Every structure is written in C-alpha cells, then in structure tokens.
Measured scan of single mutants.
Amino acid sequence: MISNAKIARINELAAKAKAGVITEEEKAEQQKLRQEYLK
C-alpha cells in the first residue's frame, strides 16, 4: 500500500505540472509514483 506521504507528493507534483513549473526530473518522479499508486 502506498503511504500518505507519497500520495501527498503525487498531489504536489500534479499542482506543479498544472502551474507549468515542473522539471523533467519531477515529471519522471511523478510517473514513477503514479505507477506505484496504480499497483
């Protein structure tokens, strides 16, 4: 099960992506976390 901290990070990265200020490194982290969440 995914931790609350990881869910919070997913939401934080989603907000950054929506604002258009996300880095390529953060995009990769976001994809990794989303895949983990979906498992």
Rank of each mutant, 00 (worst) to 15 (best):
E26R: 00
I2E: 09
E29L: 03
L13Y: 02
A28T: 10
M1D: 10
Y37R: 03
A8D: 13
A5M: 08
N4Y: 06
A14E: 13
A14F: 11
Q35N: 09
E24F: 06
A19W: 08
Y37E: 07
S3H: 08
R9F: 03
A5T: 05
K27I: 12
K6V: 15
I10P: 01
K6G: 05
E36G: 04
Q31A: 12
E25T: 12
A8H: 11
N4G: 12
A19C: 11
E26Y: 01
E29D: 02
L33E: 00
N4S: 14
Q31G: 06
E26P: 01
L33Q: 02
K18M: 09
A14N: 13
N11V: 10
E25V: 07
K6D: 12
G20I: 00
A28G: 07
I2R: 04
I2H: 08
T23I: 01
L13H: 01
E24Y: 04
I22Q: 04
I7F: 08
K27S: 04
K6Y: 09
I7W: 13
L38V: 13
Q30A: 15
I22M: 07
A15P: 00
Q30E: 08
Q35S: 11
E36S: 04
S3Y: 07
A14L: 06
E26I: 01
K27Q: 05
N4I: 13
T23V: 01
N11F: 14
K27H: 06
A14H: 08
N11Y: 11
I7N: 04
I22W: 02
K27A: 08
I10V: 05
I22Y: 01
A17P: 00
E26V: 01
K6E: 07
E25N: 07
E29N: 01
A28V: 13
L33D: 01
Y37W: 11
E29K: 00
K18Y: 08
G20W: 01
R34D: 07
E25I: 08
N4E: 14
R9T: 02
T23N: 05
I7K: 13
A8R: 13
L33R: 01
K32I: 13
A28Y: 12
N4H: 13
L33G: 01
N4P: 14
K39N: 15
T23R: 03
L13N: 00
A5C: 06
E26M: 00
E25G: 07
N11T: 10
I7P: 04
V21R: 07
A5F: 05
K6Q: 09
N4V: 09
S3G: 13
A5W: 11
Q30V: 12
E29G: 00
T23M: 03
K18N: 07
L38F: 10
E36T: 04
K16A: 05
E26W: 00
K6N: 10
T23W: 01
L33W: 03
A8N: 13
E29S: 01
A17G: 04
L13P: 02
A15L: 11
E25H: 06
I10Q: 03
E12S: 04
M1K: 14
K16I: 04
G20K: 04
K6F: 12
Q30N: 04
K18F: 08
A28E: 09
A17C: 11
A8M: 13
A5Q: 14
E29R: 01
Y37A: 09
E25L: 14
Y37H: 04
A19Q: 08
E25K: 11
N11R: 13
I22S: 02
K32L: 14
N4R: 11
A19V: 06
E26S: 00
E12R: 04
A15G: 05
K18D: 13
I22N: 01
I22D: 02
N11W: 14
A8I: 10
K27G: 03
E36L: 06
V21M: 05
N11S: 08
L13K: 00
R34E: 15
K16E: 00
K27E: 05
A28S: 09
I7C: 11
A15V: 07
E24A: 11
K39V: 13
R9H: 02
A19N: 13
S3D: 13
L13T: 00
T23Y: 00
K27R: 10
K32D: 13
A8T: 10
E24M: 07
A14S: 10
T23D: 03
L38A: 11
A8Q: 15
K39A: 15
A19K: 15
I10C: 11
Q35P: 02
A15T: 09
M1F: 12
K32F: 11
A14W: 14
I2P: 10
A17W: 07
K18P: 00
Y37P: 04
K39G: 13
A5P: 10
K16F: 02
E12M: 05
E24T: 06
I7Q: 10
L33C: 03
V21Q: 09
R9S: 01
A14Q: 11
Q30W: 13
Q35H: 11
L38K: 08
K32T: 12
T23H: 02
N11L: 15
A8F: 07
L33M: 03
E29C: 02
E12W: 05
Q35W: 09
I7M: 07
R9Q: 02
I2N: 08
I7A: 06
V21G: 05
E29V: 03
A14T: 06
Y37F: 06
K6H: 10
S3E: 09
E24Q: 08
A15H: 05
E24L: 12
A19R: 07
K39R: 05
K18R: 11
A8G: 08
K27F: 05
Q31H: 13
A19S: 08
L38D: 14
E12I: 06
A15D: 07
A17E: 10
M1I: 13
S3I: 11
E36K: 05
E36A: 04
K6W: 10
E25R: 07
R34Q: 14
G20Y: 03
K18H: 08
K18Q: 11
V21N: 13
K27P: 00
L13V: 00
I7H: 05
E26D: 02
R34V: 15
E12K: 04
E24W: 08
Q31N: 09
M1T: 14
K6C: 08
R34S: 12
A28C: 09
A28N: 09
I10S: 03
K16H: 02
Y37T: 05
K32M: 13
V21F: 07
L33I: 04
E26F: 01
R9I: 03
L38Y: 14
I7L: 12
A5L: 08
K39H: 15
T23K: 03
N11M: 13
K16D: 00
A5V: 12
Q30G: 05
A17I: 08
Q31M: 10
T23A: 03
I2V: 07
Q31Y: 11
A17R: 07
S3P: 05
K39P: 14
V21E: 05
Q30S: 07
M1Q: 12
Q31D: 13
A15Y: 06
E24V: 13
I10R: 03
K16Y: 04
Y37S: 06
R9L: 03
K27N: 05
T23C: 12
K27Y: 10
T23G: 02
A15Q: 13
E12V: 06
E29F: 02
L13R: 00
G20N: 04
K39Q: 15
K16W: 02
K16S: 02
E26T: 01
K32A: 11
E25S: 09
Q30H: 15
K18A: 10
I22P: 01
V21Y: 05
Q35K: 14
L38S: 10
E29T: 02
L13E: 00
I10Y: 15
A15N: 08
A14D: 13
E36N: 04
K27D: 04
I22V: 02
A14G: 04
N11H: 14
Q35D: 15
M1H: 11
N4L: 14
K32N: 09
L33V: 02
Y37M: 09
L38G: 10
N4F: 13
E24D: 10
S3C: 10
G20D: 02
G20R: 03
E25Y: 05
I22C: 00
K39D: 15
Q30D: 05
E12D: 05
V21I: 14
S3N: 10
E36Q: 06
I2A: 09
A5R: 08
N11K: 13
R9K: 09
A8Y: 09
E24S: 05
E26K: 01
Y37N: 06
A28K: 14
K32Y: 11
I10N: 02
